[in-house]
């Protein structure tokens, strides 16, 4: 029992250090409840491809200020996201299971500076952030699987050297 608690504590610590994309739901569901995330993912992937967010060329245009396209997409996505979050908070909208929707504040650390810069360099090289990598492979650019594996390796190496890095 004590061992189990320790694992949970380590889990909580690991999750709180990196409060992005954590599962806030305390409910346990059967596997098929995940199908809804598959559907959202599929729609999201189609939007990514059709809006050319997955295009290496679009990313090059963005970083050379040669097109408004990507700025329009990210900007309008943020505005819609903000409005939605405001509505959820104001009207106390619950999940479809009746749970209260939770938000966790992100804390600042130097990783956002150093890591942010490193990711920016990689973004302009690959022409893709993590989401588009998956979509690009789907469109038939199978070599991007190598890029994805390299990104997984990068994540792993970060985990390995994390204690030695400034945060």
């Amino acid at each position: 029992m004590r061992e189990k608690n320790q694992i949970q504590d380590a889990d909580l610590e690991a999750r709180s250090l990196d409060a992005i994309c954590v599962n806030e739901s305390h409910l346990k569901h059967r596997w098929y409840h995940n199908v809804k995330y598959l559907v959202v993912g599929i729609l999201f992937g189609i939007i990514f491809v059709k809006a050319e967010v997955v295009s290496w060329f679009r990313i090059q245009e963005m970083f050379r200020l040669q097109s408004f396209h990507m700025y329009g997409i990210i900007g309008s996505a943020v505005i819609v996201g903000m409005l939605s979050v405001w509505l959820i908070k104001t009207f106390n909208i619950k999940t479809i299971y009746g749970e209260k929707i939770e938000f966790h504040p992100k804390t600042f650390n130097k990783g956002q500076l150093y890591g942010g810069l490193l990711f920016g360099l990689g973004w302009a090289l690959t022409g893709a952030c993590p989401g588009p990598l998956f979509a690009q492979i789907g469109t038939g650019a199978t070599v991007i699987a190598v890029t994805l594996l390299s990104a997984i390796a990068g994540t792993w190496v970060y985990g390995y050297v994390r204690e030695k890095l400034p945060h």
Binding site: D18, A19, I20, C21, I74, A77, V78, G81, K106, N109, G111, Q112, Y114, G115, G116, L117, L118, F119, G120, L121, G122, W123, L125, T126, A128, C129, P130, G131, L133, V143, I144, V146, T147, L148, L149, S150, A151, I152, A153, G154, T155, W156, V157, Y158, G159, L165
Partner: peptide, 24 residues
């Protein structure tokens, strides 16, 4: 592809998120 991918994976985790988690 390889260096770029590595920077994407290392950088996003170091920063604690990517375009979706942080920017959006």
């Amino acid at each position: 592809m390889v260096v770029g991918g590595f920077l994407v994976g290392f950088g996003t985790r170091y920063a604690g998120g990517c375009t979706s988690g942080h920017a959006i």
